[in-house]
Simulated assay, not measured.
Amino acid sequence: MTVTWRALRLDDAEAVTELFAAAEKVEPTGEEHSVDDIRESLESPNSPLPEAGVAVLDGDRLIAYAMTARRTAADPVHQMRVESMVHPDHRTDALGAELLRWYEEASSELHRKVFPGAPLELHAMAHDNQRWYASVLRRGGYEHVRTFLDMTADLSALPSVESTVEPVRYEPRHEEATRLALNEAFGEHFGSAPLTPEVFRHRVTGSAGFRPELSFLTLDGDRVTALVLCVERGVADGEVVVEYVGTLPEARGRGAAKSLVARVLREARERGYRRAVLGVDGENPTGAQRVYERCGFVVTGHWHVHARPVSGR
């Protein structure tokens, strides 16, 4: 086998999508990625290609890829996110170790450009079923630091939830107020960093999958005090993703999040969706998991964050 490494390119999107599909057959995570999803990921402002991505090829066939993503803040540590996927037929300890070395080299180079002198820490996520990847991370010195939960709601069997707020549907004129509210609401969350207007537009409002008709806000004048933003991702039919749920600290305790999520689920059902999915920090300090359970969500999977300090510790 002749393995070559080169910079990852936007035109690798289809081959990367095929990697994920091959892996999903042997280690199901519940995530199905479309080519458009992968292309949007490759276009992320936080992962500027070519320096932030690498492709590994056997001949002219893509057998693995990896990416690193800078953050918008280092407060006090720059927590860069790294990810990769290797085709199940090509997984070896040697290739896994080489990918981790690439993580460190590429991340360190990008880190020096944005936060020189700040401590650097790499964060990688592995699903319960991604045992090979988790073992590679452990052998590479990564330690488990957090667990996030996948949750799913069957829209045909929703509990009754009394609304305590008057939501308004998202409109483009609320974009900046929504971004500011999201940053404030998530300021205390694990691994969170403020979203710049460019990144917010890329991830949410400018995404092809953004569903403004299923995104709701509560307002105090022109200020957003609570929000639920939804997208469609992957190729799963009849599924909506509740991407962000946030409430400003002074508006908590009034049932705003529960009311907005319940409104989204009812509207999604009326529009023909069969299920809704979301992810939540298992140690979320606001008790978000309990809110989602009251709205009809149940835990269906776990993603484990593994971290390794690279410099400054």
Rank of each mutant, 00 (worst) to 15 (best):
Val280Asp: 04
Arg266Phe: 07
Thr68Lys: 14
Thr68Val: 15
Pro212Val: 04
Arg173Ile: 08
Thr17Asn: 01
Arg81Ser: 09
Asn46Pro: 02
Arg101Leu: 10
Tyr273Ala: 12
Trp5Tyr: 11
Ser135Lys: 05
Tyr244Ala: 08
Gly296Tyr: 03
Glu162Ile: 05
Ser135Thr: 07
Val86Thr: 14
Ala256Pro: 00
Thr205Cys: 02
Thr17Glu: 02
Val165Asp: 08
Val245Tyr: 06
Ala106Thr: 09
His111Tyr: 12
Arg61Phe: 00
Arg131His: 13
Glu24Thr: 02
Asp128Ser: 15
Asp36Ile: 06
Leu110Asp: 10
Glu166Asp: 01
Thr72Tyr: 11
Leu219Lys: 08
Leu10Asp: 13
Ala236Cys: 11
Leu155Ile: 09
Ala157Met: 12
Arg91Asp: 15
Gly206Phe: 03
Tyr133Pro: 06
Gly234Ala: 01
Leu278Ile: 01
Ser160Glu: 14
Arg169Gln: 14
Glu104Thr: 10
Arg139Val: 07
Pro212Asn: 02
Ala226Gly: 07
Val242Asn: 08
Leu10Ala: 14
Val235Ile: 12
Gly140His: 01
Gly296Ser: 04
Lys25Thr: 10
Leu95Glu: 11
Ala268Arg: 05
Arg138Cys: 05
Arg146Ala: 14
Val204Gln: 09
Glu14Pro: 00
Ser135Pro: 00
Leu214Asp: 05
Lys258Met: 03
His302Cys: 13
Glu51Trp: 10
Leu227Val: 00
Leu182Glu: 07
Leu99Met: 15
Phe216Cys: 00
Glu243Met: 13
Ala94Pro: 09
Gly246Tyr: 03
Pro50Cys: 04
Leu8Glu: 15
Asp222Glu: 13
Asp150Ser: 11
Val145Gln: 02
Glu213Asp: 02
Leu158Cys: 13
Pro119Gln: 02
Glu171Cys: 04
Arg294Leu: 05
Gly253Asp: 05
Val264Asn: 02
Gln79Ser: 13
Glu243Tyr: 12
Met151Gly: 00
Leu217His: 09
Phe210Met: 06
Val242Gly: 07
Tyr170Phe: 02
Pro50Glu: 09
Ala7Lys: 07
Ala177Thr: 07
Glu109Thr: 11
Leu227Cys: 01
Ser34Lys: 02
Arg274Trp: 01
Asp237Glu: 13
